[in-house]
Every structure is written in structure tokens, then in C-alpha cells.
Amino acid sequence: MSDSGGYVSTGEFKRDASYIPDRITKDGRRPEHGPVEGDLWPVEPGRYRLVAAKACPWATRAIIVRQLLGLEDVISLGTPGPTHDERSWTFDLDPGGVDPVLGIERIQQAYLARFPDYPKGITVPVVVDVPTGQVVTNDFPWITHDLFFEWREHQRADAPDLWPADLREEMEEVMQRVYTEVNNGVYRCGFAGSQEAYDAAYDRLWTALDWLEDRLSTRRYLMGDAITEADVRLWTTLARFDAVYHGHFKCNRQKLTELPNLWGYARELYAIPAFGDNTDFEQIKKHYYVVHKDLNPTQIVPDGPDPAVWLEPHGRS
């Protein structure tokens, strides 16, 4: 995702949350969960390419879920570099600056191949139809949802149950609060356009983080003893908290390392390959400190914090 949004009259940051609403489902069926406002595409191994920058928290969710479910050989992965301009993310990490599967330099090209007059921001994650080179969807919450529900027959045998039926109702409530108050809450602080808006955003964020700190005092993961989609969604904000949000977004009441339950929980997740392998602190820092020139006009990228702290024993069981 790019940090697209605007301000209401009070100076509060408001995210533009409308995306291409297409879904990829088994046999192109009508999905059992969620709305259908766009086209339906069939599940086909090898047909689609997930394009997701490791710098972006919203995109990293999809990379993690793809690996947790063992879909690496079923859906290929393209990874743009950590910075982008007004046009779009670019494949500057690939030889010649070209995605080796799609043959494009900018993910914008896949958007325009389908929508020549696409009027909105060019965001990641995005799923691209490889045969046509056209964008399918960038609706990030439904991308990870459908990787679990619609691609089941292609998942590895021991894939985790990321959406347990008996916890789903409560999990939806937890994820909604995590999204509005934490995932988006840090942005609401960072891009506040007035002191009043910042103060309100800061209070909302820390109310939610205190709730999470308390919740994790009595359970291993957000929903109990096993990892769920809720943990994936919280993780990407926690991973960026001390490196970016604490200072760059002024979320500085405490560091993550000063919150015992959240810090232990975060280190336990980091030790899981799907989480740790896809967390690149250098890309994360470069993205925020270089792209957000309004917040960091010098574009200087800080050297710290030391990532070695993530390797310390988490002491949780």
C-alpha cells in the first residue's frame, strides 16, 4: 500500500480504503464469506503473481500468509524495492530493474494494462494475472482471507488454521480493533494535521496497545494457543514500531521493547520463519524515512535500533 489518504476538517488523517474488489476463488465460485462487488477469478496454480514489498506492512501480511500456508510453489512472488515515487513502486531489486516474470519496471504497468485510466493510488500487495499482465485485486484484507479459504487444496498438509471456526466471531472483532486503532492508528499519529488530531490519535493508539499488553498477559497469541490471521495483522505494526513509528510517527510513550508481554510475543513471532524471514528492517526504514519527505525532509535513514535484540530469547511457552 502507499500511504494515501487525506484530512478531515480537524486535521485527522483519513485513509482511502477503497480497492479493486475482485476475488480469486475456487472454480471462480461465489465466496462463502464477504462481499462480492467485483469480478470472480478461478484458483489456478501458477497463474497469479503476488507483488508485495517487504517494506510495506500491509503487503508483508500477504507474504507471511503465503509462506505459512505453503503456497510458495503455487503463487509466485515479486518484491518491489523499498521506495516509490508518485507513480508507483518499482522493481529496483531485480536485475535490470525489471520483474523477471511480469517483465515490467513498475507495478503501475499492471494496473494500467487493465484500467488505462486507473484513478487511484498504485498500492501493494497486488495480485497480477500472469498471462495477461493485468492486475486482479489489491484489496489486501481479502487477499489473505482468500489465500486461506479458497486455496486450501494447494496448502501444505500441516498449514495452520488461521481462521478457526470457533473463534472467528471474536477474532473479527479483535482484528477490527487492531486495524483501526493500531495498524492505522500509528498513521493517524504520524500524519495528523493538527495538535488536537495528534493528541486524540496518540491516546487512541496507546489505549489499544495497553489493551493488547493486558490481553497477552494471559494467552500465548491473540486468540489463544495457536497463531491466527489476527497475529499476522498485528505483527507487521509491531515489527516497525521501534524502528519507525516510535520516532518518525511520534508514537513515543514507550518503545515496544519496554512492553514486556508485547515484546516477548513479538520476539516469539520473529523466531517463526514466515515472520522473521520476511522482516527486513533496512528496507522498512528506507521506505518510511526516504518516501515521507514531508515528515523527514533530509531523507536521512537512522542506523538504529540494533536488530540483534530480536534474537534474544523470548522466554514464552
Rank of each mutant, 00 (worst) to 15 (best):
Q299M: 13
V136D: 04
L71R: 06
W163Q: 09
V74K: 14
P82D: 08
I284W: 03
R219Q: 15
L77P: 04
D294M: 13
W41Q: 07
A59I: 13
E282Q: 09
Y288I: 03
I63M: 01
A62W: 00
N183D: 11
A201G: 12
Q134V: 01
A62P: 09
R66P: 05
P82F: 02
W235A: 11
R106A: 12
H84Y: 14
V291K: 03
R47G: 13
D146N: 10
P160D: 01
V174Y: 08
Y288L: 02
Y221P: 08
V301Y: 03
D94N: 12
L93C: 05
A201C: 14
A271H: 14
F191N: 06
N183Y: 05
I143V: 14
D85F: 12
H145D: 00
R15T: 07
N184H: 04
R66C: 06
W211F: 14
F249A: 05
Y265C: 01
L269P: 13
P307R: 11
R316Q: 04
K54A: 03
I122T: 08
R267K: 15
L50M: 10
R106Y: 06
Q283T: 01
T207C: 00
G193V: 11
K120V: 07
G276Q: 04
E86L: 13
T137Q: 08
E181N: 09
G78I: 14
K286T: 14
